[in-house]
Design a protein around this nucleic acid. Structure first.
Length: 686
DNA sequence: AATATCCGTATTTTT
DNA sequence: TACGGATATT
């Protein structure tokens, strides 16, 4: 412990040792933030603070685990597992199961994920016949977006619609009505959405009866990645620690990349005003990257018009500048990445110490195919669609009606899987089940919809659905026994679903295998409740989470969306698709705010590199789903690498310098006039 | 009247 | 792949 403290620089040590008033640590990329937090936790315990009285709020459960295991290595104590570590949402879930009763919240609530939220919105939207008028009304995903932003930003609907959704402003009455009904419905059903978790925590921390109990549970609160928290989360913190005593937040406004989740850098910028007496510490020495890499990344963020009040420096000398590699097209880019990865491996950098980063999940599709072909193992973080696949949601819906028979969205889903049952039929069956008292008060156990199904009560189901309905009954019955392990329940549900999947899909095999995978995941859980809650709050974040342990001792390359790479670092980082339209994503090119967020995103990607940074730019993109095979268009290098920044990079191309290719390179990389010529050429090049 | 099915379109990032 | 809208089928 003592050793570790010696190795800290003075600012880091101050952050570790600070006691008393509120503390804001502005920690630049690679400035040893995680290490400092881990040291602080270790030091607090060393001083006699009980681990279970420390609350460590992080951006992901992975980050909490990582920090706590470092702290354990420091103190040599195993007890740090008792530190309350995790996301705001996961911590809220635990606190509300313990103390939610004080707010009249049933302790057996279930948690809805984003898709469920949208589905419930859609149910309400359809009931109120809002989609069928002659005017267009926001879709379910838009409604869910708006709702979530209003709650998380603690904004007025009117203002938010005007500012961020002007095309929906005219429908404000309808939107309001949908929200009202949506809230009523989820209350009746004992379900909480993500936003509710924070809202209720906030209420709990302010409720006269509960306030003292909940706030008094913790002696110290530490928050990581504070630049990516939202107004509601800041309110929760203020409610837990009105005077900011023993409250520490760490973050970097230059790395704010979650405004789409209503996060706001205001939280970190205005922290000192909100908590008077704040001590501010800046961590400006970068230990991660070599000097040439840091110079380039500093240059990238310097072009941001917002002020970032710090300058990072490094004393890690190196001759190697970051590489900007121009490739012919995506296939060429894949080839270049694979070759570079293997070269680095030959020179002693294991695959695990290398990462390929990209803007969106599917940017790695082609690369994944190529890696498999060349037998290079990899895991992918972010952009996973596993839980979004219809058949996985179907399976989970069955488990969820067992867990919470009032869960309307799940019922709706399950009933529609039956042959001949569509939205209208599902609605009718539900009211038939519900009328008997399922949703009403009273003797719930015997009258819930599940109970009625189990009791073989007759239902007016359409003829083709009858046999499947009987199968569903059998499956529910088998799963609701007293000691059926979670994995066995998933297995039973899979057996029920298999024939339905084969009926619905041409090639059901991969889907059935997905359900086997789900069974694998379930086998790690002690209860169905923990399983369904965890899938909502801490879904598998990587393909290795899905594959299970066998991969763990092997070496594998890391593929990750930039968002999921937050907080990570690797010896060698490959950033692919450095083209306008990819980064910045053409979904985000509307207003300056969003462009600036894309710039920070690019900055986050670049600053993950310790020793080597390679940026790849494909000149041509083939338009796949667009009829003709060899249609393509020329890309422009990302606007975040203008000439002044490029001068700090080593620029190369994958191809030999013959005239034609030079011309293409110039056209795509340089001025707009040339770009126009390239577009012209595109007209006859096919 | 309700469901199945086909076709074209548009697909960010995540608790 | 999911959806919205249209048409075909039960």
């Amino acid at each position: 412990m003592f050793d570790a403290l010696e190795r800290l620089n003075p600012s880091q040590r101050e952050a570790v040792e600070h006691l008393g008033g509120p503390l804001l640590v502005v920690a630049g990329a690679g400035s040893g933030k995680t290490w400092t937090l881990a040291c602080r936790v270790a030091r607090l315990v060393d001083r006699g603070v009980k681990p279970e009285r420390i609350l460590l709020l992080t951006f992901s459960r992975r980050a909490a685990r990582e920090m706590l295991s470092r702290a354990e290595r420091l103190t040599g104590e195993r007890r740090l597992g008792r530190v309350w570590g995790g996301t705001f949402h996961a911590v809220a879930n635990h606190l509300l199961r313990l103390h939610g009763r004080a707010l009249g919240l049933p302790p057996d609530f279930t948690v809805m994920d984003r898709a469920d939220t949208a589905d419930l919105m859609d149910l309400v939207r359809a009931e109120m016949a809002l989609g069928s008028g002659e005017r267009r009304f926001p879709r379910k995903d838009t409604l869910a977006d708006i709702y979530s932003r209003v709650v998380n930003a603690q904004a007025k609907l009117t203002d938010l619609l005007e500012r961020d959704y002007p095309w929906c402003s005219d429908e404000i009455e309808g939107v309001r009505a949908v929200f009202d009904r949506y809230v009523t419905r989820k209350r009746e059903q004992h379900v909480l959405d993500y936003d509710d978790l924070l809202v209720y925590w906030n209420a709990l921390a302010q409720a006269p009866a509960a306030r003292d109990v909940v706030a008094a549970m913790f002696d110290h609160i530490l928050v990581d990645e504070y630049q990516d928290t939202n107004a509601l989360q800041a309110d929760v913190l203020a409610a837990m620690r009105p005077d900011g005593r023993n409250l520490m937040v760490v973050g970097d406004d230059a790395q704010a990349i979650y405004s789409f989740r209503a996060a706001t850098v205001k939280n970190i910028l205005e922290f000192p005003q909100r908590f008077p007496g704040t001590t501010i510490i800046r961590l400006e020495q970068n230990y991660r990257s070599t000097r040439p890499i840091l110079e380039a990344t500093n240059a990238v963020i310097a072009l941001s018009p917002q002020r970032h009040e710090k300058t990072l420096w490094s004393d890690r000398a190196s001759e190697h500048r970051p590489l900007l590699l121009t490739c012919l097209d995506e296939a060429d880019q894949c080839d270049a990445v694979c070759r570079s990865v293997l070269e680095h491996r030959e020179r002693g950098v294991p695959l695990k110490e290398q990462a390929v980063l990209f803007r969106t999940g599917h940017h790695s599709d082609l690369l994944e195919v190529e890696l498999s072909r060349r037998n290079i193992p990899f895991v992918k973080y972010g952009g996973l669609t596993f839980l979004e696949a219809a058949h996985v949601k179907d399976a989970l819906a069955v488990l969820r009606i067992l867990e919470n028979p009032r869960d309307e969205v799940s019922w709706f889903r399950v009933l529609q899987m039956l042959d001949g049952v569509g939205p209208a039929g599902a609605r009718r069956l539900m009211s038939e089940l519900g009328d008997a008292g399922g949703i009403a008060e009273g003797d719930e156990a015997s009258r819930s919809p599940v109970a009625r199904l189990l009791n073989d009560e007759p239902l007016a189901a359409p003829a083709p659905s009858r046999p499947e309905l009987e199968e569903l009954r059998a499956a529910l019955r088998d799963c609701s026994g007293a000691d059926v392990p979670t994995a066995a329940q998933v297995e039973r549900v899979r057996r029920f679903l298999e024939p339905l999947l084969r009926r619905r899909y041409d090639n059901a095999e991969p889907r059935v295998r997905d359900l086997e995978q789900l069974e694998q995941i379930a086998s790690g859980y002690p209860s169905r409740e923990r399983f369904v809650t965890d899938l909502a709050l801490d879904p598998p974040s990587s393909t290795s989470d899905l594959a299970g342990p066998p991969l763990l001792d092997e070496d594998y390359l890391v593929l990750s969306t930039i968002h999921s790479a937050k907080g990570g670092e690797w010896d060698v980082v490959h950033v692919i698709h450095a083209a306008d339209g990819m980064i910045p994503s053409d979904m985000a090119t509307g207003d300056d705010e969003r462009i600036e967020e894309e710039r920070r995103l690019f900055y986050v990607a670049l600053t993950r590199a310790r020793d080597a940074l390679h940026v790849y730019f494909p000149l041509r993109y083939h338009r796949r789903n667009h009829g003709r095979e060899d249609r393509h268009h020329y890309a422009q290098l990302t606007r975040f690498l203008p000439q002044a920044v490029r001068a700090m990079l080593e620029q190369r191309a994958t191809y030999a310098d013959d005239g034609t290719r030079d011309a293409i390179a110039a056209a795509a990389g340089a001025g707009r006039a040339d770009h126009v010529d390239a577009l012209l050429r595109d007209l006859w090049s096919e």
